[in-house]
Design a protein around this nucleic acid. Structure first.
Length: 518
DNA sequence: AGTGCAGTTGACTTT
DNA sequence: TAAAGTCAACTGCAC
């Protein structure tokens, strides 16, 4: 066995994955403290070939990589961005450097990335390479119980975000690896990366977020009033902890102002934003604890209620209409077309789109979920698949929420301006008819009739889902899902209601624990 | 002035 | 992050 002298500087490889930043980056700090650092991002063709990946993701990620590369260049080194399988790249590194220590964040990703990390871990073991993985945001690896999860999260957030390493010694990149060096000329010139993330956070907390709470629900206002940090959190150009600490700083500043000078609603909006940062990790934790969430119902008692195989002809047509924004329901179509064009739509509309596909169209969430995954620039596997399952009613622990697209349209887009923008063939209709064009005397040309009857389809979906939910075995098994994944955070629960006088005794609905779910 | 009543509101339950 | 239905309290108004 070779004896490595204490003086031998061992190469420290920082493997960047979905953490394309230099601030609050534990692997970078740890690497810098241990030896000469080589910065690595691997362009993995297999990753981009997965069913949930899209060019849109790649464009965003490459922009962030370019921004990271620019920072590394300013620091006097180079970001290595080889293309290929991680194993092959690591083998090349070993061939050139002999040995190294690798640092990265724990990744909670799709099945492909999970498998890849298992292969990398086993390669590291076989090749005597030490791989240090740092916890990512509030997600806990090998979590034994959900009971104390909120405390875990609070503890993670309580420490100040890490700065740039005080001393950074760069490893020399040998000539035979010079083709790995990121050539920024070939990267897209999108303005993105950590700098943009911090600019968004700042403008949100100082200005745009004042009416976040009130304006996040409508697609007319959400685009400006929401933080728009989601793709940055997904690609790690900013950490959740950086956001949380910025929220605390802003809240302190607001509280210092005399109440009458304080911008109305800002504190409430910031509180709402902070709770969503908590949710962010809460949902990713589900995928971390149960990777099968990506393709299998969390509650197996809902297996088979929808077609899990290849879509039949009717289903394929419904799915295609939904994906293309051609369902005949103007608000659904406007939201989908807007999403397809921009890569983003607000949360409530995402829920409505998913609800429509899952209930009125009765499509399995995996099919519709893949379309959304590819469209969302901010696709975050843990959040996405948890949400898909929730909005399809197959978790067993969440309230069934079936959205009415006509009501949502009237509530969130009362003057039809969002519909007019994205469904121009309906632009000439009046406010009164724009959400129900099939009721017009003369049908709008070039716009489809509803692909399903809303009333009938909604009723059929309710019957099916509630029948399933009411089965004793399904009810009983929901408890196990709750134990594994349910939120124990009481602050997310509705406060206990005061007992109203003169009413009959309120019947107990569900267990005390179940009422803690959101 | 007090009563009857249709319509509204809000809290709560069911699906 | 739902929607629809139920029930009781409340409101405005006519007698």
């Amino acid at each position: 066995m070779a004896v490595v002298s204490a003086q031998t500087p061992v190469l420290q490889v920082v493997w960047f994955k979905r953490d394309l930043r230099w601030l609050d980056h534990a692997p970078l700090v740890n690497a810098a403290a241990s030896g000469p650092v080589l910065m690595l991002w691997i362009d993995e063709p297999q990753m981009w070939a997965q069913a949930d990946a899209s060019q849109r993701h790649r464009d965003f990620a490459l922009g962030c990589v370019a921004s990271l590369a620019a920072w590394v260049a300013e620091q006097g080194s180079h970001l290595c961005t080889p293309c290929g399988d991680a194993i092959d790249v690591l083998a090349d590194l070993k061939a050139v450097f002999g040995s190294f220590v690798m640092h990265s964040f724990e990744e909670t990703g799709n099945a492909w990335s999970y498998e890849r990390d298992l292969v990398v871990a086993s390669w590291c073991r076989a090749n005597r390479i030490i791989w240090h993985e740092s916890p990512c945001n509030g997600v806990v690896r090998r979590l034994s119980s959900r009971d104390r999860w909120s405390q875990h999260w609070a503890n993670r957030m309580s420490h100040a975000p890490l700065g740039v390493p005080l001393a950074l010694l760069w490893a020399a990149i040998p000539k035979n690896l010079s083709h790995w060096v990121c050539n920024r000329q070939t990267q897209p010139q999108t303005a993105t990366g950590a700098t943009e993330a911090h600019a968004l956070l700042d403008s949100f907390l100082m200005v745009r977020g004042q009416n976040y709470r009130a304006e996040m629900s409508s697609p007319l206002t959400a685009a400006d009033s929401c933080s728009r940090l989601s793709p940055h959190l997904a690609w790690g150009t900013i950490s959740v902890r950086e956001c949380v600490h910025a929220v605390w700083v802003r809240r302190t500043a607001l509280l210092k102002q005399p109440a009458e000078q304080r911008p109305a609603g800002f504190l409430e909006s910031i509180k709402s934003f902070e709770s969503r940062l908590h949710w962010h990790c809460h949902f990713i934790q589900k995928l971390e604890s149960e990777p099968e969430i990506e393709w299998r119902n969390v509650h197996r008692g809902f297996d088979g209620i929808r077609n899990e195989g290849d879509p039949c002809e009717t289903e394929a047509q419904l799915l295609a209409a939904w994906c293309a924004g051609q369902t005949g329901y103007p608000f659904v179509d406007a939201c989908m077309r807007s999403l397809n064009a921009t890569g983003w739509i607000n949360f409530r509309m995402r829920a409505m789109l998913m609800s429509f596909a899952s209930y009125q169209l009765w499509l399995h969430w995996r099919q519709s979920g893949l379309h959304l995954a590819r469209q969302f620039i901010d696709y975050e596997p843990g959040i996405h698949w948890s949400q898909c399952q929730m909005q399809s009613g197959v978790t067993g622990i969440n309230t069934v929420r079936i959205y009415n697209p006509i009501k949502q349209g009237i509530d969130q887009d009362p003057h039809g301006s969002f519909v007019r923008q994205w469904v121009p063939e309906l632009a000439y209709l009046t406010n009164e008819t724009i959400h129900t064009p099939w009721l017009c005397e003369v049908l709008p040309p070039n716009y489809p009739m509803p692909v399903v009857d809303l009333k009938l389809a909604t009723q059929a979906a309710k019957d099916a889902i509630y029948t399933q939910k009411a089965k004793p075995k399904v009810k009983a098994d929901a408890q196990a899902v709750y134990e594994k994944h349910g939120s124990r955070n009481p602050s997310r629960d509705r406060p206990a209601k005061a007992i109203r006088p003169k009413t009959r005794a309120a019947p107990q609905t569900g267990s005390a624990q179940m009422s803690l779910l959101f």
